[in-house]
């Protein structure tokens, strides 16, 4: 579904940056890989939309609404963005 060439590390950085655009002081390192990001950082639906927008723009990966279910935790986000 994706043809991204992102590495795991790049995807991880991208997810962190996309969160930090919304919550500037978010410390992703302090949050486990399996923690749901929306709840952890209290993202409302507009925040989440802008999160998705940043991920898509910077990775070049198209993201449909059906893909949202893959964008839950750091682990699932990285998995989705790297095509794994």
């Amino acid at each position: 579904m994706t043809n991204s060439t992102l590495t795991d590390a790049e995807a991880r950085t991208l997810v962190a940056e996309a969160i930090q655009r919304i919550v500037p002081d978010a410390d992703l390192d302090a949050v486990g890989d399996d923690v749901p990001l929306r709840a952890e950082f209290e993202l409302d639906s507009l925040d989440f939309l802008s999160f998705v927008e940043t991920l898509s723009q910077r990775s070049g990966v198209g993201i449909t609404e059906n893909d949202y279910e893959h964008l839950v935790t750091m682990r699932t986000c990285v998995g989705f963005l790297t095509g794994g």
Binding site: S45, L46, L49, E53, S56, E65
Partner: peptide, 17 residues
């Protein structure tokens, strides 16, 4: 909403709110 958003870019999508 879902049907409408399917064809739209992320910036044009609506949220249920």
């Amino acid at each position: 909403l879902h049907e409408r958003n399917r064809t739209l870019s992320i910036t044009e999508r609506l949220v249920p709110a």
